[in-house]
């Protein structure tokens, strides 16, 4: 892994040559355009305080006109998308904390936690959807180098976004699973308490199925309006209410999972599969070259066919005109 840095010696040569060039400006330089360019750069230098777009002012090099220019508009889009991805990442970290907190057993009803999770989930999904929409805008038609750059920027952002959404979905589904487990447990425990309040809680997992069965029967019994004490009814209502809330939450999470799946599907078109031929650098260069050539051929063909088309229509019109004239001539000779 040895390397050798030749920058210093290069700079030395460059400075030496520059001093030669400056001391004798009339001397013709090796690259024909030397003279005017020097003028231009000196012009630019004098204007320097007004040049609004020089990104590194500390650089006192004489920059020529080409290097000072606005980057194309899509750069803003790509920056926006990457900023969004960053923000989504931060939000994800927050969400993780909220998830952990919500799953912890607490005395309060945890409604604040729920709301926070809801908001965060919504925000993240929103950010991703927005980024994905913006990403679609990045794509360009045509075969120029610029469109290639855009395509590649799009790909790389899509890969980032996909990674993020996979991670997000994984988090969501684990949360969902835990929540569902808790819900089952909660139901079981509540009803169990209702049914045999004096008995100690059953901790064993094996019983949860039985408990669930019992709870269904129990609900069925309520539906049949069998008599229960007021106290028991109130408790049941409360548990029902609680369950409904949890259900709503679960539905929400499922919805966002589905939404993400859609985003994922859209993105997968853009993302490169690793280890395939598409991931080869030389293959990409070849295909670009081939497609440029192909495009050129198509253009030529189009031009040819266009020319041909014009000629053919011209000829047909002339032939038709000839026929009409001939008919007129015959008619004239017959009638007059």
């Amino acid at each position: 892994m040895a390397t050798r840095n030749r920058t210093t010696i290069f700079r030395k040569y460059r400075d030496a040559l520059k001093s030669v060039r400056v001391s004798s400006p009339s001397m013709p330089s090796t690259s024909g355009s030397g003279g005017p360019v020097i003028e231009m750069s000196s012009l630019l230098q004098s204007k320097h305080p007004y040049a609004p777009l020089s990104t590194d002012d500390s650089d006192s090099h004489a920059r020529n006109a080409l290097t000072v220019g606005l980057p194309p508009a899509w750069v803003d889009v790509s920056e926006e998308v990457s900023a969004n991805i960053q923000r989504a990442k931060v939000k994800m970290a927050e969400l993780m904390k909220a998830h952990a907190k919500a799953l912890m057993p607490s005395f309060g009803d945890g409604r604040d936690d729920q709301r926070l999770i809801e908001v965060l989930t919504h925000e993240i999904t929103d950010l991703m959807r927005k980024s994905e929409k913006r990403l679609q805008n990045l794509s360009a038609s045509g075969l120029s180098e610029d469109s290639n750059v855009r395509k590649n920027v799009q790909r790389s952002l899509a890969t980032d976004l996909q990674k993020l959404s996979v991670e997000f979905r994984k988090k969501q589904s684990t949360y969902l699973k835990r929540l569902q487990q808790q819900k089952e447990g909660q139901d079981g425990v509540d009803l169990e308490m209702n049914l045999n309040g004096e008995k100690s809680r059953l901790e064993d997992d094996e019983f949860s199925d039985i408990v669930w069965f019992v709870s269904t029967v129990y609900k069925f019994l309520i539906a049949l309006n069998l008599g229960f004490s007021e106290h028991q009814m109130a408790k049941l209502k409360k548990s029902e209410h609680f369950t409904a809330e949890r259900e709503r939450e679960i539905r929400q999470v499922v919805e966002s999972v589905n939404e993400l799946a859609q985003i994922m599907k859209d993105l997968s078109v853009l993302v490169i599969d690793q280890g395939t031929i598409v991931d080869r650098i030389d293959y990409n260069i070849q295909t670009v070259a081939a497609s440029v050539e192909e495009g050129y051929k198509q253009l030529q063909k189009a031009e040819r066919s266009q020319k041909q088309g014009a000629m053919v229509t011209c000829a047909t019109v002339l032939v038709i005109m000839c026929c009409v004239m001939l008919v007129l001539l015959i008619l004239k000779s017959i009638f007059f």
Binding site: G69, D146, R280
Partner: peptide, 29 residues
């Protein structure tokens, strides 16, 4: 090296040295 690794390093265009000189369009960004 692979294309996706290049993208991770923010390399958004790979070109051959003789084809890069065909276009004149400035890309100062």
């Amino acid at each position: 090296y692979s294309q996706s690794e290049l993208l991770q390093k923010e390399v958004f265009l790979v070109e051959l040295v003789d084809s890069i000189s065909m276009s004149k369009e400035p890309m100062s960004h």
